[in-house]
Design a binder for these strands. Structure first.
Lengths: 217, 217
DNA sequence: ATAGTAGTAGCACGATCGTTCGTGCTGTAC
DNA sequence: GTACAGCACGAACGATCGTGCTACTACTAT
């Protein structure tokens, strides 16, 4: 049995947040309970609670933890691809892979929390959730805009509209995969992304996408 | 003050379910509380509870009530349009209108409950929610299939894929309208539906869609 | 060796959860 | 007029909620 060390606090805190994020992806951020969380981690309610000033603080910290996990699992891999349409495609595929890999047990953490808070009145938690969502959509949009600048997308293409439609397919896949226990919805989303991208792509854009596919195939 | 009549039971039950569905669209079906519901309706917890054998029964009844409202507000209006691509378009527009009209205060009831239960283990409530979702997607799919039979959609068009992509746009609009308090996402979805339908439509299909648009001015 | 600090546990609080029970009122049926 | 069914109520149950307060332990710094 390891005794608590000087630096165990941060370690414990991390473990709490990891478990909290996992639980929240299933039961929602409001569904998290200090008691359940403590039981899950084999510690006392009060011991756990002492790491946070309030449940709201815990929720906010959980979101930040999940954001970091999202960056590591979805954003970072895709950012190694060249900016433009290839990266845009990579972002979509990265998200679908993240869903397929069950990075969070209940599906995408942010999809779950967005759905949980979208009808609720404003508040710190809701605001942070909305901010995360906005940031992700912004990434898609900026990547699409860059692709258009590179001449890979039609000049008339609306980056925000394209981001909206891509994100819609990704979100729908996330829901249906879990709701119907059917991973084939990931391929439906891939199909949708492919259709949408090639429809908006210029010849140069299609070439860029094609060369990636060849490099991988 | 009205005294209870012989038939007041059903009336009260209906009022309970109406309020329960409204609350659930905001806070989720698990977020419903007998106490809050009773307070909201100005009656006692026990009096309310007596109408249902358990909270789960209340949840199931709430879903059935919401399903009826959905039929009235979304399905029925669209079913007066001629079968095929016109009806498919009408179903999408009907859904967007239903979101815009705030039929449920927290956005689409079924989007909210689907998101709430998609990561949870099976159970009667989850199963019913999944069934509702499947039925709606099935309606979109069958309508698309019919449109293809009518020669309004390309022979190579996959009705289920099309239904998935349309539904994705509708769902995304539902989330973002409320999350960002920005009704313009409804137009984003309209744009997506239009793009998708015209891309899959034959000349005959486009004519059918066009004549409707003209008829409406 | 001593004081101080970080981390955890124990215990208790008021509130609220879903649920049960007994009671009373009202309108209908005999 | 009396019995009954339908409906709602208040009180109370054990459980769990978020949140404090106190005490103990292990480590660090002096």
């Amino acid at each position: 049995m390891t005794r608590p060390n000087r630096a165990d606090g941060l370690e414990t805190r991390r473990a709490i947040l990891r478990t909290a994020a996992d639980l929240a992806s299933v039961d929602g951020l409001e569904g998290i309970t200090i008691g359940r969380l403590a039981t899950e981690l084999g510690m006392s309610k009060s011991g756990l609670f002492a790491h946070f000033g309030s449940k709201e603080d815990l929720q906010l910290a959980t979101i930040e933890h999940a954001r970091q996990r999202y960056v590591d699992e979805v954003l970072s891999p895709a950012l190694s691809e060249p900016a433009g349409i290839v990266r845009l495609q990579a972002l979509c595929e990265s998200f679908l892979s993240y869903v397929a890999r069950d990075v969070f047990p209940g599906g995408c953490f942010f999809a779950a929390t967005m759905a949980e808070y979208d009808g609720k009145p404003d508040g710190p938690v809701r605001d942070l959730v909305a901010d995360c969502q906005e940031q992700w959509m912004g990434t898609l949009e900026r990547t699409a805009a860059r692709a258009r600048e590179e001449g890979q997308l039609r000049p008339g293409c609306d980056p925000r509209q394209l981001a909206f439609e891509l994100e819609a397919a990704l979100l729908a896949a996330n829901w249906y995969v879990h709701l119907h226990h059917d991973a084939s919805f990931l391929d439906r989303a891939r199909q949708a992304v492919h259709t949408r991208l090639t429809a908006e792509a210029t010849a140069r854009g299609r070439t860029a996408l094609g060369s990636v596919r060849q490099r991988r195939g």
